[in-house]
């Protein structure tokens, strides 16, 4: 489904990705881990065509994505921090994104689930951080895309919303989708991951299941396992 080969990316003098090879061909939840600045977000942005790779190729469903845009119909992306055009109303934003993407999009159930009805007519600039994140979630999940990419999705969510969000991810997983998540919350990773990709200094340092990493490092919990790798 997604094939990354020899991906290099540098920003000025800073080399961020130094030859990433990655093959994602089965559904499930893949978490991308790594310390700050290890290239997680850059990898995702390359996948989305937002950053342009210096070297290497990105193949999506058998096609090179460089300069393409149509393949993004198959991907739902939830950015780290969601800031929206301040003068738009929430409902207008939903309608607008629906208008821009192919294939309808069903926001009704999601709006109800995250209790967003009262804010639908408010301007986006007036929303609190948590509410904005809920809007962000609805925007991401209202489309039935085979690939979902979530960049630090749990930031700013209250426990109830977090619970609802996890449920949503399970549901999507059970529909047979591929979900890429970056996060720093290890409990969350342990709970949901089918596979872990650990990035360090622009390289894939480890790839495998949570059990694999524990076995490899001889640690009992994921946090200690990661710490061992970093030492």
């Amino acid at each position: 489904m997604i094939t990354v080969r020899g991906l290099h990316k540098r920003f000025g003098k800073l080399s961020v990705l130094e030859g990433i090879d990655l093959e994602i061909d089965s559904p499930g939840i893949i978490t991308i881990l790594g310390p700050n600045g290890s290239g997680k977000t850059t990898l995702i942005k390359c996948l989305l065509g937002m950053a342009i790779p210096d070297k290497g190729s990105l193949i999506f469903n058998g096609k090179d994505i460089l300069g393409e845009w149509d393949y993004r119909n198959e991907i739902s992306y939830m950015p780290q921090i969601a800031r929206f055009p301040p003068n738009l109303k929430v409902i207008e934003l939903f309608n607008m994104i629906k208008n821009l993407r192919r294939g309808g999009g069903d926001d009704g159930a999601l709006i109800a689930a995250f209790k967003l009805e009262p804010v639908l007519d408010k301007k986006l600039s007036t929303l609190s951080g948590g509410t904005a994140q809920k809007v962000n979630i609805v925007l991401t999940f209202m489309f039935d895309s085979p690939v979902i990419i979530l960049d630090e999705p749990t930031t700013g969510l209250d426990p109830v919303a977090l619970l609802r969000f996890k449920k949503l991810i399970w549901e999507e997983k059970n529909k047979g989708k591929t979900i890429l998540i970056t996060t720093h919350i290890m409990s969350f990773v342990e709970e949901i991951s089918d596979r872990i990709v650990f990035l360090l200094d622009g390289n894939i340092y480890f790839e495998g299941t949570v059990a694999d990493i524990k076995t490899q490092t001889g640690e009992n919990d994921l946090e200690s396992a990661i710490a061992t790798i970093l030492q």
Binding site: L48, G49, W69, Y71, R72, Y77, P79, A82, R83, L100
Partner: peptide, 11 residues
Amino acid sequence: DFTELLLAQPI
């Protein structure tokens, strides 16, 4: 930010 939101869309 809005531009980034749009960049992730099929446009």
